[in-house]
């Protein structure tokens, strides 16, 4: 396992995930209210590029005809069949136990730590001035 630097914190804005490639695999980085999460860019259902779906809230209802949007910005709707995934856990809403998108633990590290290594940034130089998103792969 190695730790990878994936992006500058400033590059990942709420509602606008950044898709990066690390070790040959595509990973979507999400900023949900200042917390960072990473999901494999591959839907566990039929392999669509999951992170290109819509960032949405979870629609819930207390009774037929009543609609509530809860947890805005915390769900991802797959661009193909529209299944909903919890960005924080990768779990699908419809079948949380068996349908789950691969997720990775993301850490925010200051550049001053990272430049010392042993971290790897595949596509860009790491500088001391910024904070970075780092995952174990």
């Amino acid at each position: 396992m190695s730790r990878r630097v994936l992006a500058k914190v400033s590059e990942v804005k709420p509602g606008a995930p950044k898709i990066v490639t690390a070790m040959g695999r595509q990973i979507g980085l999400f900023n949900v209210g200042g917390e960072y999460f990473a999901l494999a860019n591959r839907c566990p259902h039929m392999g669509a590029e999951l992170c290109k779906g819509w960032i949405v809230g979870l629609v819930q209802s207390d009774a037929p005809g009543e609609y509530r949007v809860t947890r805005p910005g915390e769900f991802l709707r797959c661009p193909w069949h529209g299944w909903e995934f919890d960005i924080k856990t990768g779990q699908s809403w419809c079948d949380p136990k068996s349908v789950k998108a691969r997720n990775f633990k993301v850490q925010v590290e200051p550049g001053s730590e990272l430049v010392k290594g042993p971290y790897v940034a595949e596509t860009f130089p790491v500088t001391v001035e910024e904070d970075y998103l780092v995952i174990d792969l």
Binding site: A48, E49, K52, G53, W54, R77, P79, W80, H81, G82
Partner: peptide, 10 residues
Amino acid sequence: RMMAGGMRID
């Protein structure tokens, strides 16, 4: 329709 007028978003 449900998704983007019934289309794959991509």
